[in-house]
Structure formats: structure tokens, C-alpha cells
């Protein structure tokens, strides 16, 4: 791998390889000494144009556990907010000798530009761009699904296996969700069946060609017995209640009634089904406390798996010889 820009760029073999590598990384994280010397002397820059403390510290932990030097470059309070261009920022990072740039940006495609515009030689790792992609989130989600639904006594992480035959429901604001896009790509690459559940206003025009089903009714999908349910974060400002004509839904209350995961729907899910959420959650909006705190919720575990998956990706991008463009 030279960059990780989109989950759609990962083929089946590569995806399984990343998850398997993450499984080895996860094992090292239960040891007393968690730090590995693997990326000593490498510099990883966390370039965050958009606030996301959770994602940043996950990448920071992953890089530090591999002994890389980490530089946090936050757009807040930096020259970026004074109008420095993405290009000049890239040239600065190039001059600083960054080996990898982990970039979070509000503009879809900004990581593509960093990787391909010729400004920067570093490996570019997309940590979420606009409403486009968030590939490490999809990887940690697939890792979590595989561990719970494909793990065995011999291979608790399901090493070597994919997600063939599993049914995953992704529920909520698909239109604005890079998590949904990334997960549709990766889950289907790994053989899972995906159903997107959203009100029609929150399904993008063009999604009809995606390799998944689309439903407007959460109850029907719950009763179809999915193996995992992924709840997406909903931005309250998109949910009406003063938003005017451009709101995507009449009111938060109606959203919760139609698309929220509550105790009633939770109880109807199959025994083995797991509940996921990329965080941060809006308790009481897309997910009720009953669902979020139930034993089926693997939301906290997703966070831990995030570090292992990001270690795996950093390892695969940075440890070996640099692949030529």
C-alpha cells in the first residue's frame, strides 16, 4: 500500500491482510509492554482540519505504540485558519520530513489531492474527508464484526476469514456519512450483505448503484434478523425543529420513532446480533441508552479495535520499502 484513501481501494486479499495484521497488533496491546520498536525514526503527522479528538488520539496512540514520532497539526489556531492553502501546508509537511500524513478534512477528496497533486511524498492516510470516506473506521468495524461473528476458540479474532454470509444493517444519515460509504465498500468486499436503512431524504441520489439494499423501514430490517446493526450519528441540525425547508426530517422525535434503536427493537434482534456505533453517540436520538449500554453493544470495543487497526495500517504503509507511485 502506498496510501489509504478509500475503503473502495482495498481488494479482498488486502482487506483480510489488514485485519489479520490488526489481530497481531491487538495481541500486543494486551501485554504489559505495549510499545513496539517497529516504526522508530518515522514521523507521522496528524493533520486535522476538522476537530475530532477521538480519531486523533486513536491515530496518535497507534503511531506511538509503534514508536513513531507524532506531530499533531491542528487547523484550529494554525495558519490554516488564516487562509494558508492545503498546498502550502503540504509543502511544509514535506519540508519537515513527514513519512505519513494522517489527514482529516471537511472537504471530500482533500486526502486525494494531498496524495496525488505532487506536493508531498509522504504516505497519506485518510482519517475522514467530508462526506466521502473514512477507511480506518470501516476497517475497525469489520474487525469488530469478524471478531464477534467469525471468531473461534482457536482464532478468537477470526484470522484468515472474511465476512461472507453475514448481514449488516447500517442505519441513519447515509447521505452525509463517510462511515456508511466506507462500510458499504469494505463489508461487501469482505462478502457481507449490507442493507442501508434511512429516510428517503437521507439516501443519496446515485446510491441505487451501490452493492447493497436500501430500506426505508427499520422495523422490517430488524425483523429480517441482521447479524450486526450499525447506527450512524445524526446531526441534530439536519433533523428539523427550526431548520426550515431544507431539513431532511420533520422533527427529532419523529426520527427517533422511525429510525432510532430502542429497547423494543433491540429485543427483536437475533440473539447473536451486535450493536455498533462509530461515536460520538446522540443518546435518545439515534440510539437509546438501553441499546447503547446493552451487552450486545460493542461500541467501547470498537474504540480499542480502532488503535489496533490503525497500527496495522501504519505498519503496512510505513514499515517496508516505500512503494513507487
Amino acid at each position: 500500500m502506498r496510501h489509504l484513501l478509500s475503503a473502495a481501494d482495498l481488494d479482498h486479499t488486502t482487506a483480510v491482510h489488514i485485519l489479520d495484521t490488526a489481530a497481531e497488533m491487538a495481541k500486543t496491546q494486551s501485554r504489559e509492554i505495549k510499545k513496539l520498536p517497529t516504526l522508530r525514526g518515522r514521523t507521522v503527522v496528524n493533520l486535522f482540519f476538522e476537530d475530532s479528538t477521538r480519531t486523533r488520539i486513536s491515530f496518535e496512540a497507534a503511531a506511538k505504540r509503534l514508536s513513531a514520532d507524532v506531530i499533531n497539526f491542528s487547523a484550529k489556531g494554525s495558519s490554516v485558519s488564516k487562509g494558508e492553502s492545503l498546498k502550502d501546508t503540504a509543502l511544509t509537511l514535506q519540508a519537515m520530513g513527514a513519512d505519513a500524513v494522517v489527514v482529516r478534512h471537511q472537504a471530500s477528496g482533500a486526502p486525494h489531492r494531498l496524495a496525488n497533486a505532487g506536493w508531498l511524498e509522504a504516505a497519506v492516510l485518510n482519517a475522514g474527508d467530508g462526506t466521502h470516506q473514512h477507511p480506518t473506521q470501516a476497517l475497525l468495524d469489520s474487525f469488530t464484526v469478524r471478531r464477534h461473528l467469525r471468531g473461534t476458540d482457536v482464532e478468537p479474532d477470526g484470522v484468515g476469514s472474511d465476512l461472507a454470509g453475514l448481514h449488516v444493517a447500517i442505519v441513519g444519515d447515509v447521505l452525509h456519512s463517510r462511515v456508511a460509504r466506507s462500510n458499504v465498500d469494505l463489508l461487501t468486499t469482505l462478502g457481507a450483505r449490507v442493507t442501508l436503512v434511512a429516510p428517503p431524504t437521507l439516501v443519496p441520489v446515485g446510491a441505487e448503484t451501490w452493492p447493497c439494499e436500501v430500506s426505508y423501514h427499520l422495523d422490517e430490517v430488524v425483523d429480517a434478523g441482521p447479524d450486526a446493526v450499525m447506527m450512524l450519528r445524526v446531526q441534530r441540525e439536519r433533523m428539523g425543529g427550526g431548520g426550515g425547508a431544507t431539513s431532511f426530517f420533520p422533527s427529532p422525535l419523529e426520527y427517533t420513532r422511525q429510525y432510532g434503536l430502542d429497547a423494543r427493537r433491540l429485543a427483536r434482534l437475533p440473539e447473536h446480533a451486535i450493536v455498533m456505533h462509530p461515536g460520538p453517540m446522540n443518546r435518545g436520538l439515534e440510539i437509546s441508552a438501553d441499546a447503547a449500554d446493552s451487552p450486545r453493544a460493542v461500541i467501547v470495543e470498537q474504540v480499542a479495535n480502532g488503535v489496533a487497526v490503525r497500527m496495522a495500517v501504519l505498519y503496512l504503509l510505513l514499515a517496508g520499502e516505500r512503494e513507487k507511485a
Binding site: T131, R181, P204, V205, G206, T209
Partner: peptide
Amino acid sequence: TQGAQMHEGIVSAELGLAGWP
């Protein structure tokens, strides 16, 4: 077309760019 970035369709859905229908 508020905030529209490209033609609204299959490609915009994939790229996550606001659509210009």
C-alpha cells in the same frame, strides 16, 4: 444547488460531493 459541487448522480454519491441535480 446550494453548496453544489458536481453533477448529482452515481459519481457524486460515491465521492461524497454535494450534488448539482
